[in-house]
């Protein structure tokens, strides 16, 4: 029997997996290097604290940063309670059967819908029907719709992963259903849920298309003071600068991309940190 061909097949397969991994890594590195090369020269404190300007060296993304932060916080407070409670209902109360699978299939479908559709939905409901105008509230509600399916899916998965024995033990000690859910299941599922929430939020702050549809401003001379104020966000400012004719604005856009990437990176880091922290806590249980 000839083993050498089998060994070769093995290493060949390994090589293919390596090439596939390298491919995405190279694409990412190229992008990063390109952006850093284009954008480093405009990276300054001014970029963070100035308003947009027609002079590239004076232009900044302060209102966009504030808009993004406002939007993220509002979206958090709208989407998280809704998503979490829906997930608890689906996993803990809804009996297994046709209904449940129908709902889950629909939610999974919704989570892969193009984001611009949510923009159109937001425009029709929040702006035209409810009259919230082109405000932070409309933006946050639209983004909440966008990330709700993602939050629900990750939360249901986290809840399902909680061992049955934990629930049983809890019931055996005489706990009510809501006590079991809030005091045992929820804390145990928390790391997974939080990770899902943070990743969904970081998707939300990178979105442009739905916000263009609901009419977020491109130039804005002030920062929002209430949820009914108009706003702009970092991705929109980037989009606006890349479509300017002057190359300086393209560099400026690259600098803003760096800021956005740092923001996203720190959010993801936070997600990892939270997961590790709570997992340690859980293993002590």
């Amino acid at each position: 029997m000839n083993f050498s061909w089998r060994y070769q097949k093995n290493s060949l397969f390994k090589l293919f997996t390596l090439l596939a991994a390298l491919f995405s890594l190279i694409a990412l590195t190229t992008l990063l290097v390109h952006i850093l090369h284009e954008g480093w020269q405009y990276l300054s404190p001014q970029l963070l604290k100035n308003f947009p300007s027609r002079f590239p060296h004076k232009a900044g993304i302060y209102p966009a940063i504030m808009g993004s932060l406002w939007l993220m916080i509002l979206t958090f407070f709208i989407a998280v309670p809704l998503g979490l409670l829906s997930a608890l209902y689906i996993e803990e109360y809804l009996p297994k059967g046709k209904w449940k699978s129908l709902i889950m299939v629909n939610i999974k479908n919704l989570s892969s819908m193009p984001s611009i559709i949510y923009g159109l939905l937001g425009l029709a409901i929040f702006i035209h029907t409810l009259g919230f105008d082109h405000s932070l509230l409309s933006g946050a509600l639209t983004l909440s719709l966008l990330i709700l399916p993602m939050i629900i899916i990750t939360a249901t998965e986290a809840i399902r992963a909680v061992p049955k024995s934990l629930r049983m033990a809890s019931f055996a000690l005489g706990a009510e259903k809501h006590q079991v859910v809030f005091l045992q299941v929820l804390p145990a599922a928390l790391p997974g849920i939080l990770t899902g929430i943070i990743l969904s939020l970081s998707r939300a702050i990178g979105e442009t298309a739905p916000l263009i549809v609901i009419g977020a401003a491109t130039y804005i001379s002030f920062t929002p003071e209430s949820i009914m104020d108009p706003f702009t966000v970092i991705p929109l400012q980037i989009y606006s600068w890349t479509s300017r004719p002057q190359a300086e604005f393209h560099h400026l856009a690259a600098s803003a991309i760096i800021v956005l990437m740092i923001l996203l990176f720190s959010l993801n880091l936070l997600a990892v940190f939270i997961r590790n922290h709570f997992q340690k806590y859980k293993s002590r249980l």
């Binding site: 947009p52 001379s221 002030f222």
Partner: peptide, 17 residues
């Protein structure tokens, strides 16, 4: 809008595209 706000800092101008 940029120049206008230097003179009228309290007027809130938004420009969309």
């Amino acid at each position: 809008a940029e120049e206008f706000n230097k003179v009228f800092p309290r007027v809130r101008v938004t420009v969309g595209v």
